[in-house]
Amino acid sequence: MRQTIGVKIWRWSIISVVAFYLVVPLYAMFDFSTKPFGFADSGRTFRAWALIGTQENLIEAVTRSLITAAIVMALILFLVVPTAIWVQLKLPLLRRPFELLCLLPLAIPAIVIVVGIAPLYRWISINLSESPITLAGVYSMLILPYTYRSLSAALDAVDIHTLAEAATTLGAGISRVIFGIIMPTIKTGIINGSFIAIALVLGEFTISNILNFKTFQVVIAQIGRTNGHVAVAVSLASLLFVVVLLLLIPTKKRQGAVLDVDLT
């Protein structure tokens, strides 16, 4: 019993320290965003917050970034995850090269990537689309190291070979095995990987800024140049928005049902 109380105290101490560590910067942001910044202001003011809605390009930028994040997530679900499973199941010899390939973006600085892909995006802008949504392509490459790590950990934790064979003997084809059995089994890894990816996409600045795409972060930076209080208010609002998104994580049952589709 005493041990349980000790564990409880220890647990709550850690949680408190972490919460403190996280909450202090957030409070500082809130504090700054509500400080007076005009001649007419005094005391606390929510003018910066009220100005969020009047910012040019902001809503479009948020929408575009969210669409980009959704595309990246779709690419993870329907390309990266099935490929990782396929390699693990059918091409074990390619596991190492695949892992290396996925980790590569981590080793290359963002600026180098931008220089490398700039001509490609110039071509895309001229011939296909000027929309920042096309950034989904380069983002889905950037997120590979993070997504792959969490996928790989999830795949290693389960005997997917036996599960795949069991499903096969029961009549399942390979797509059903991947989408109906393995993906729901490693869904925690997929969700973790996807959220890291979304966070990365919503927070990426270097590439979009240099390529001159007006994404969410680029617009915040622009606002910051004209009014720091509003920029901080927008940042805090976006953080709250992401928290709400996280709270909307599909429940276990629903997620399983969503992924249990047959593509054969």
Binding site: D159, E165, L170, T185
Partner: peptide, 18 residues
């Protein structure tokens, strides 16, 4: 294998966890 109609029980636990 998926068309053979064989029922198999494996050594390792093989129930679909979800």
């Amino acid at each position: 294998a998926s068309n053979r109609g064989m029922g198999m029980v494996f050594q390792a636990y093989s129930l679909f966890p979800h």
